[in-house]
Nucleic acid binder design. Sequence first.
DNA 1: GGCCATCAGGTTGTGCACAACTGAATAGCG
DNA 2: CGCTATTCAGTTGTGCACAACCTGATGGCC
Lengths: 151, 151
Amino acid sequence: MGDDLRLSRHLCFALYAASRAAVNLYRPVLDPLGLTYPQYLVLLVLWEHGDTTVKELGDELMLDSGTLSPLLKRMESAGLVRRVRRPEDERSVLVSLTEVGTALRGRVASVPATVAQAAGLGENDVGDLRERLVELTAAICPPRAAERRSS
Amino acid sequence: MGDDLRLSRHLCFALYAASRAAVNLYRPVLDPLGLTYPQYLVLLVLWEHGDTTVKELGDELMLDSGTLSPLLKRMESAGLVRRVRRPEDERSVLVSLTEVGTALRGRVASVPATVAQAAGLGENDVGDLRERLVELTAAICPPRAAERRSS
DNA sequence: GGCCATCAGGTTGTGCACAACTGAATAGCG
DNA sequence: CGCTATTCAGTTGTGCACAACCTGATGGCC
């Protein structure tokens, strides 16, 4: 009847609660490394793709410059990354790993396994659930662009 | 081999991205009502259960007083709720709806349907996905208590 | 070349989240 | 009864997220 406002029926709340719980699961592992969860995500992208512009990071992580700029500044202060404005296009800034940032990879290699174990998760369940979340995100994320086009 | 640090393999990132995308879906609907998503959640609990202590709200929404206290203060300023310290136990504070807060229910009755439509979701998919998220949250949330017990 | 729309990154302001801490009230136990 | 541990809200400080806005660089179009 479209009138069901019970909290327990809200998919969005389930997502919201699960996301926060998952991030909290990473906290005790990342804290000793001086990392927050979003900072860890930035490192994942840099380890995987190498030097990356702020815009590319934003596309990968679905974050805007308002979030990334101060976050990257903190990571630069911590000595994990460098930020250099590109000579061939002065609009964009290239983010690259320092020695320290690169070395950190070895110290987090075991993180996913540790977290998965803490969650008591099997590989199969995880993969399937992940796929469905990615589909959901894809379904609800572009609408913004669609709205802009239609307006 | 436990060495897979690719972003695309991370369930936690899928959760994180999906959660933010879902909350952003609510924004254009809630903004005209002067509500944020967490404030909307508080109203859901109050509409469903009536007067509720801050602690009960925290249990339902998995938020602590550090988050709820300022949030409820803002809702009180907006005239949506009242906060009264309980006479029979002066430690706890009872949150109750004002006329305005109660009346708002009518204006958001259509929100879940609107959002679901925007997401292009069928009922069945949603229910199943929600259940799996709730299970996941339950699996990874209690560990804190378990740690405390074992320490 | 000159002009304008677009793009990239940064800044500002608001509102969560969470850890760590404080202080008042209560419960429970000797 | 008195004392101690616990409970509950609230405060403080840090770090996201996001909207709105700003600035400078670039690309196209004439």
